[in-house]
Design a protein around this nucleic acid. Sequence first.
DNA 1: CTTTTGACTGAGT
DNA 2: AACTCAGCCAAAA
Length: 109
Amino acid sequence: MNFFQRVYEVAKKIPAGKVATYGQLAEILGTRDARRVGQALHANKDLKTPCHRVVNKNGELALNFSAKGRSALGGGGWREQKRRLEAEGVEVVRRRVALKKYQWEVICN
DNA sequence: CTTTTGACTGAGT
DNA sequence: AACTCAGCCAAAA
């Protein structure tokens, strides 16, 4: 199984209304390289994966977020992500979420 | 094969 | 809060 695939598997485990950081997923996957997590999600063009629930450690949305399945997303990468998070009940202020409240805590994996 | 690049992070300024 | 520097490691070119 590819590393990418594993990233998706973990991403799918993130409960709606919660967010996880790249570093957090990386750690679950047994690596320290948060970047690869991001690359994996970027490579994933399937919108089935809740990539919008993955944010950087600052709680900010990905600057270059883009679900390739959708052309220009109506103009803004992170805007689309923001829209989706709000749809799940996550408060998104400007470009960030309240990690303090919404960061995913792994219950069991 | 070698080099660049990046949806990151953490520490220092 | 904003910027820099360095560490990290695989995919792309």
